[in-house]
Write a protein that binds this DNA or RNA. Structure first.
Lengths: 240, 240
DNA sequence: TCAAAAGTGTTCCGACTACACCCATGC
DNA sequence: GCATGGGTGTAGTCGGAACACTTTTGA
């Protein structure tokens, strides 16, 4: 949640009431697909990084700023994928607990206990460039593998699921790999990323051909890994 | 906009502030793809059918109810496709005008002049089953062909555009034709609908084979049209 | 019997797969 | 040289497109 100071939570009058956003921030460390999850101090509550929309800022700006503050990354791939508006998607008890544990006055932040509709975005970032920055509210933020997620509060697990579905549908269409990998990468690294995202394995040769057939890759110099084998080429995505 | 009585607009305390929905309701009359557009009385303002979300109802229920009230159709295909949250997407002057022309007190409905974030849905309905029902605010509601739309207020043209894009992407994937056509239809009718939606023409034989290859069609008796040619089969979609 | 439109058989081409083989590299 | 893993040639398979042909209908 956005806050200005440690002892002072977001002010009702600065924000659009009932509207929140949540972000599923994907990173790939070369082996596993991970997302950023934050833990509210002393509550055992895990949640997706989220925030609210200021009255004088666009939805997209609000989310961009929110994700930027957690990752330090300026130009990130950000895509809206769904808006969650069920009746059961707020938990005032949990929110009260979070406020309490951060020494915030519940009366002054009562608007946070009300119902929220949340617009969800996913972001793809280069794992290596990031040093996750915890919230001013002093909660921690950590990378979690998708198959080792802690139990998330409210409907956040459903949000992650839907983010993953959308990411899979868009993977080919939108050249998404480019945002998860370093600018230059080997075919094997690309295949790894694809396999982890899709949750299936591909044949090496078929994958290579499929990727090259898209005409979206540029081949660069060879990479001498020190391995006892032929050196692989490095590739990068063509900027279209 | 949802209202309870003619002389009494929506009450602030019943609804979630800053949150609206808009619906792009597609229908196919056998020749053209059309959408429902309403005109606010004496204002020359055209808009998509929309509404607000009650505090104690889910987003989806709110939209379902809203579309149902305009079309009378209970089981409709409804899909959320995007949430619009730009800063420039409200026009208090226009809203004032609408309130005024409907004899509503502006002070009492001031909350409607504020900024709204709108969750947009599209619906697919069988043209024949519908008798569009105008708003209690006494605006008219009409079918318009997509290529003959009047200028729409605010960002509603952008919303229509995005709805159409999403519909095109989902057309094959989700068997959408079934919601726009009568339960039984000829291959030619199906092809017509596809062509109008996609904005391109298909070869007759290729289209027929492609459709039959999906295994989603059931063939029924022949239809004797009275035309001087072989009678076409009727088809319906398999319910999966 | 003829024109119009629906349905189908056949051929062709291109994309993708599998599998094999060849190449480069460090030990 | 040899094990390891990357790159590519080739043959087979599948699906879709094109086109022509056949079938059915009313005039």
């Amino acid at each position: 949640m956005n806050t200005d100071k440690h002892s002072q939570g977001p002010k009702k009058e600065d924000y659009l009431s009932h509207i929140a956003f949540d972000s599923v921030i994907f990173g790939f460390n070369g082996k596993q697909l991970k997302i950023l999850v934050l833990e509210y101090q002393n509550t055992g509550l895990f949640a997706l990084p989220g925030g609210f929309v200021k009255r004088n800022e666009s939805l997209k700006d609000a989310v961009t700023k929110g994700v930027m503050e957690r990752t330090g990354i300026e130009d990130l791939y950000l895509e809206q994928f769904h808006t969650f508006g069920n009746l059961d998607r707020f938990d005032s008890k949990a929110m009260e607990r979070i406020l309490e544990m951060n020494g915030l006055d519940i009366k002054a932040h009562e608007w946070l206990l009300d119902r929220f509709i949340s617009i969800a975005y996913y972001a793809l970032i280069n794992f290596e460039e990031v040093n996750p920055i915890p919230d001013p509210l002093a909660d921690s933020i950590e990378w979690y593998s998708l198959d080792e997620l802690p139990p998330l509060m409210m409907d956040h697990e459903e949000i992650v699921q839907k983010a993953l579905e959308t990411l899979r549908e868009n993977l080919d269409k939108k050249l998404l790999g480019m945002n998860l990998l370093p600018t230059k990468f080997t075919m094997k690294e690309l295949q790894n990323a694809y396999e982890k995202i899709m949750g299936e394995t591909f044949k090496r040769t078929a994958f290579q051909r499929r990727m090259l057939a898209t005409k979206n890759l540029v081949r660069h110099e060879k990479l001498f890994t020190g391995g006892a084998h032929r050196a692989p080429y490095l590739y990068s995505f063509k900027i279209k």
